[in-house]
Simulated assay, not measured.
Amino acid sequence: MSLLSAKEIMEIIPHRQPFMLLDTVEELEPGKRAVAKKCVSYNEPFFQGHFPGEPVMPGVLIVEALAQAGAVAILSLEENKGKTAYFAAIQSAKFKKKVEPGDVLLLETEIIKQKGSIGVGKAVATVDGKVAVQAELTFAVQ
């Protein structure tokens, strides 16, 4: 059973459909890490044009989903409730596997550094245990 449903995720982060890219949160250590799931379906709006005849989830949206998982972790802290985590930088992004309809993305983001309102997360998205995307994400909480 999931730790947080989509409705509970929306109480933490400001994202809404069609841009909320998390279905559930499976593990959560507030301020430290979050593991979330995204069940990728043929009904995703981006598949209409990316790519006709060969639907592939855009890599930037996988990175965004990882950032949303990190935002759940950092915004779960009492002092950050009601705030927003904004992208400040993306480092070392590597795209290793296509993500297609029917895949279940496991999104893990661990906060590895934080100083004041700026932090860095180590993020890895996998499908069936194989790395699809990995990156280091810098965020600013406001």
Rank of each mutant, 00 (worst) to 15 (best):
L137I: 15
V120A: 13
P55R: 01
F19D: 04
E8M: 08
L137G: 10
S76P: 05
Y42Q: 14
I74S: 06
G70T: 12
E136R: 08
I74E: 00
F46I: 10
V25T: 06
I118T: 15
L107Q: 06
Y42N: 07
P55W: 09
T24Q: 06
A123T: 15
S117N: 13
V127Q: 03
K7N: 11
P58M: 11
N80S: 13
H15F: 04
K113C: 06
P18V: 14
E8S: 04
K130Q: 10
I13L: 02
M57Q: 02
D23H: 04
V141F: 01
L4R: 00
P14S: 08
Y42C: 08
V72R: 09
L75N: 11
P14I: 03
G119V: 01
C39F: 09
H50D: 10
I12S: 08
K81S: 12
E79M: 05
E108T: 05
L28V: 14
G59V: 08
F46K: 03
A65S: 11
K32D: 00
Q134D: 14
V40L: 03
L22K: 11
E136S: 03
E108I: 00
V131H: 01
F51S: 07
V127W: 07
K32S: 05
V60A: 09
M20E: 08
G70N: 11
A34Q: 00
I13R: 09
V133K: 10
T24F: 12
E79G: 01
K83N: 01
A73Q: 10
V63P: 12
I112R: 08
M10W: 05
M10Q: 07
Q114R: 14
